[in-house]
């Protein structure tokens, strides 16, 4: 494939630049892409609360079968599922069939029987999820939980902290995805208290946008 990303000026590893996400690859010669003369007969349905977070990193609520064609377009390599319970069987089958690695990040892995689905994430599970997120090898990557609100918001919020975002900006983003009942103060406290040094970032494996964020002047 000829050089891509003239658009962004960044160079990313070959592995990722060969991904054929309909929204991103630039080459018109790409044989898997066609120009649509007419609108397709089926609509594309992204999952609930779907949003791109950074390049090849997405967030959403639990994907259901109507969302699978869209997910195929994203060409996902990994899905991080932030819950104690298993996702719907259809998602398990889907991941299995399309070679998507489904990573379980239980809310409280050490909680055993005392584990409640409405509990916030523990620091341990946040770090676990972030450790996957800072590794380019896992991309394209989707982070999701039941509704894509609080647990996903916690992890993305902590990621924004690592990227050096102001806490107010982090909270604003978190609350935007929490629906009409608004954000939970406990989640915001968790994000605020999160120790950004607890995630080990290997600069050779980190995604380019993370490196850009980290190299900002003191």
């Amino acid at each position: 494939m000829s050089p891509q990303d003239t658009l962004s000026g960044e160079s990313i590893s070959n592995e990722v630049s060969q991904e054929k996400y309909h929204g991103e690859s630039n080459e018109n010669s790409d044989e898997n892409q066609i120009l649509v003369g007419q609108a397709p007969a089926k609509r594309i349905v992204p999952p609930l609360n779907f949003c791109p977070v950074e390049r090849y990193l997405y967030r959403s609520g639990q994907p259901s079968p109507v969302n699978f064609p869209f997910l195929l377009d994203l060409n996902l390599k990994t899905i991080i599922w932030l819950a104690n319970e298993e996702p719907q069987d259809s998602l398990l089958v889907f991941c299995d069939r399309h070679d998507i690695q489904l990573q379980f990040a239980a809310i409280n892995p050490d909680g055993g029987e005392d584990d409640n689905p409405w509990d916030g994430l523990t620091e341990h599970s946040i770090i676990n999820a972030l450790q996957t997120i800072v590794d380019q090898d896992n991309y394209p990557l989707l982070v999701c939980c039941g509704m894509g609100r609080h647990r996903t918001g916690t992890v993305i919020g902590c990621l924004r902290r690592i990227m050096g975002w102001n806490l107010a900006s982090v909270s604003e983003e978190y609350r935007r995805f929490t629906g009409s009942r608004g954000g939970r103060i406990l989640v915001e406290l968790l994000i605020e208290a999160f120790d950004t040094n607890s995630v080990k970032i290997d600069h050779n494996r980190a995604p380019p946008w993370l490196l850009t964020a980290l190299e900002q002047p003191e």
Partner: peptide, 10 residues
């Protein structure tokens, strides 16, 4: 690509 282009894959 994301304006009026579609992935044939699916």
């Amino acid at each position: 690509p994301w304006i009026s282009l579609q992935h044939v894959g699916w």
